[in-house]
């Protein structure tokens, strides 16, 4: 198992390096300049522009910039963010925990919620409720994340003002509250973006889980359980669900990139100060090091998610573990 993990980690490192190189090249080749705002100012002279480019090493040939960047990476640095005037490490270091909290809550919530829906559907398979829930899960499965986020914001923060309009905390009052108030404030702000992501992801989980449960229901051991006199909920919970969880473990790994990219747009709409929000703004301002740094962290998360699902799969299935 350890050898397998080491191999996968080596593969992951190669993938991350390739992704980082491609991103570096693409973002530098894209038209535009990190000093667009400066360019837009009629008072800024050419001397000032050249000075700024030179200060950030943007006057050097692209291959030289790339070598410098790789050298920084080798020293554990991700470069300097032009737009934040701080090391990229610091910018992402402050944003990543927010993204992980949002994704973590959404991931756990979506799996719990999705599995419960699937169990409910299978227990009433073929009924009107089952069909309605299948339709709803297909509806949310097909819905663009940014659209649902905007709709959720308008519905639950404006028309029905239950939740706050974005942000991770109340920027006006948060620092003035005690610990209890701050925790409540954080949860209050987390609710709507997390629910949005959760709704999107749980639709996928419910559909997968329902199909997996329907696959195992005709199995002999289910028939045996019925003959033993177990009730339908007991059969579903103790026998069918355990055996139908394997595809869902794969889905955990697949959900990581989906949730991460979903979080990019959801974070922007809810002004959630996470990594996606930072990277989306960085693309607009051509903050090259921040974009590449964000992509590196994102690809590490995705490859680790994939590795995690493989390991969990192996642990859950004794046949794979023995190979």
């Amino acid at each position: 198992m350890l050898r397998y993990i080491a191999q996968r980690l080596a593969q992951a490192a190669v993938i991350v390096a390739i992704v980082a190189t491609i991103t570096f090249a693409l973002i530098h080749l894209a038209p535009g300049d990190p000093f667009s705002a400066v360019m837009d100012n009629p008072n800024v002279s050419e001397t000032v522009r050249q000075t700024l480019r030179a200060q950030y090493g943007l006057d050097r040939p692209l291959p030289e910039q790339f070598v410098r960047y790789v050298s920084l990476l080798a020293h554990g640095e991700l470069g300097w963010s032009f737009s934040h005037e701080r090391p990229v490490r610091e910018v992402l270091g402050s944003a990543l925990p927010n993204t992980l909290v949002l994704m973590g809550v959404a991931l756990v919530g979506s799996f719990v919620f999705g599995i419960l829906i699937a169990l409910f559907q299978v227990s009433r398979r073929g009924s009107v409720t089952d069909h309605v829930l299948s339709g709803l899960s297909l509806f949310f499965f097909s819905m663009p994340d940014f659209w649902l986020a905007t709709l959720a914001l308008l519905t639950f923060a404006y028309w029905l003002p239950i939740f706050p309009v974005g942000g991770a905390v109340d920027p006006v009052m948060h620092e003035y509250w005690g610990l209890g108030g701050r925790i409540v404030d954080r949860l209050y702000h987390l609710a709507l973006p997390a629910l949005t992501l959760m709704l999107l992801a749980s639709a996928v989980v419910a559909r997968y889980q329902r199909a997996a449960l329907l696959d195992v229901l005709p199995a002999d051991y289910i028939r045996t359980a019925r003959l033993k006199g177990l009730t339908e909920p007991e059969i579903l919970r103790r026998h069918a669900l355990r055996n139908a969880l394997l595809p869902i473990i794969t889905l955990v790994g697949l959900s990581f990139p989906a949730l991460l990219t979903g979080a990019f747009f959801v974070e922007k709409i809810f002004a959630w100060p996470g990594m996606g929000y930072a990277v989306v703004l960085a693309i607009g301002t051509r903050d090259y090091p921040l974009v590449v740094g964000g992509v590196i962290i994102g690809s590490i998360m995705v490859t680790l998610g994939s590795l995690l699902s493989d390991v969990l799969y192996a642990l859950a299935d004794p046949r794979l573990r023995s190979r």
């Binding site: 905007t150 914001l153 308008l154 923060a157 404006y158 003002p161 706050p164 309009v165 974005g166 942000g167 109340d170 920027p171 006006v172 922007k268 709409i269 809810f270 002004a271 929000y277 989306v280 703004l281």
Partner: peptide, 20 residues
């Protein structure tokens, strides 16, 4: 004085409309 930052214009507007 507090500048409350929201990069998405509808979000910034909704903050005003909702009283935030």
């Amino acid at each position: 004085l507090i500048w409350s930052i929201a990069p998405d214009f509808p979000t910034a507007l909704t903050r005003l409309l909702s009283g935030e």
